[in-house]
Simulated assay, not measured.
Amino acid sequence: MGASTALDIHRNTVVYRMNKIERLTGRPLRDHRTTMALYLACLADRLGGADPGQ
């Protein structure tokens, strides 16, 4: 199953969003270290580890 199918969005939307993430971070998503860092940041945010108000 592809990402667009799993997210129930068009394939071009997935490509657009991935390109936008690369532009914003300045790091390529094809680099496994980048994707792991972003994944861990999302997990930390979900678990309450990130507190932008502090």
Rank of each mutant, 00 (worst) to 15 (best):
T35W: 00
P28S: 04
R23T: 08
V15H: 04
Q54G: 15
L24E: 12
P28T: 03
A6C: 05
Q54D: 12
L7V: 11
A44K: 06
L29V: 13
V14M: 04
R11V: 02
M1G: 01
L40V: 12
L24F: 05
L24P: 08
Y16L: 14
N12P: 03
H10K: 12
D8H: 14
L47W: 11
D45T: 10
P52A: 00
G2Y: 09
L47T: 14
D51K: 13
I9C: 03
R11Y: 05
R46W: 10
P52E: 02
Y39D: 06
E22F: 02
G48R: 13
Y16S: 08
I9F: 02
R27M: 15
T25W: 04
Q54A: 10
D8N: 09
H32Y: 14
L40I: 04
R11T: 04
A3Q: 08
G26C: 10
M18I: 10
L38G: 00
N19C: 07
M36F: 03
G48K: 08
H10W: 05
A6H: 07
V15T: 13
R30L: 14
P28E: 03
A37P: 11
D45K: 11
T35C: 09
L40H: 00
A50N: 10
V14P: 00
G2S: 14
T25F: 03
N12T: 15
L43F: 05
C42A: 15
A3K: 11
A3E: 02
R11K: 08
R46H: 11
K20V: 11
N19I: 06
D8W: 00
R11N: 10
M36N: 09
G2W: 06
I21H: 01
I9H: 03
G2I: 06
T34M: 05
G49E: 09
Y39E: 13
P52C: 01
T13A: 14
T5Y: 03
R33W: 09
D31Q: 06
G26L: 12
K20I: 05
G48E: 11
T34L: 07
L43A: 11
L43K: 12
M36Q: 14
R30M: 13
D31A: 09
L7M: 11
H10S: 12
